[in-house]
Design a protein around this nucleic acid. Sequence first.
DNA 1: ACCTGAACACCGTTCAAGT
DNA 2: ACCTGAACACCGTTCAAGT
Lengths: 184, 184
Amino acid sequence: MWALSTSGGDTAYHHGDLRRSLIAAARDLLRAGGVEAVTLREAARLAGVSHNAPYRHFASREALLAALATEGFRALRKALEEAGRRAEPPERLTALGRAYLRFADADRATFRLMFGGVVEDADHPDLAEASSATFGALRSVVTERESPAGAERDALRAWALVHGLAHLVADRQIDAARAEACLK
Amino acid sequence: MWALSTSGGDTAYHHGDLRRSLIAAARDLLRAGGVEAVTLREAARLAGVSHNAPYRHFASREALLAALATEGFRALRKALEEAGRRAEPPERLTALGRAYLRFADADRATFRLMFGGVVEDADHPDLAEASSATFGALRSVVTERESPAGAERDALRAWALVHGLAHLVADRQIDAARAEACLK
DNA sequence: ACCTGAACACCGTTCAAGT
DNA sequence: ACCTGAACACCGTTCAAGT
């Protein structure tokens, strides 16, 4: 009866897309109401399945949150890499900073989930990998022009400045334009 | 029968200390398990009252969280002011930065609650006031030595740097000593 | 004033069962 | 494999009632 539904719309999750549907639903909940609004039962409801079906794809609510954070780190990494490709060394660092700030501004809730401490990296290997790959992309650009003494400290300072600005933007304490003006 | 208990220990909350007991209990829960571990029912249990008694002092769970964040901002402000009093202008800014980082390191969970976006400043007047008073204390020191063009941007940069370092410390991505080394 | 117990609509998670 | 319904122990919040 629904053997044909693979190709058609509403019931696609019956054939392997439930994971994706749940992540999409959870992302909507996150953006609308923050971490505390993300519940397995509501995500299941939005995906049109029973409250129990999510456990076929996520071991726990935290695993679903970890998947959202993982996707966030991948998207941020992609944005950083694209910004890096579009600029040459003197301005490259600024371009990455701008991409970082735009990410935080465009998806505040995901940014907060990524850095809010609700999901522990250590408990979710995919998340740990995505997060360190993102920092690797950032670090390689931040250190590319320096090697003398103090380089490591300068790199950390640059990272902290951008990260702090991003948090202030995500918290709506300053706006994105003022933050970008600080990138020099 | 318990008319005398005002002066004595366990049942003091029956006479006006319940609010304080609940905050203390909530603080323990926050430090032990993060925001999501703070529940009204568990705080009530720790304080030795029925699950319903907290509503005499807090309109909602969020109001209890707001009280914790408010106390956090007051403690941070006090730490910043003391640091400022103990140092003179050239080093004063660094001293404040150090105090900020030590606060984030010593009470990561509270720092995250204060800046994690779970409680909205706008919904809690006391919190809004405590938070802006804290930023005022910071801002006055950050701008005291400069007035020429670019001063506002430099002040924001200094704030963002310290704030970013503090988040990285709270997230355990760098340790407090490395962060302090970045304050110059 | 401050506290209690029962009640309601939610959660996350587990289990036995259906296709 | 993937999904369902019932069940359990939790929540936040409200209400009627006790002292």
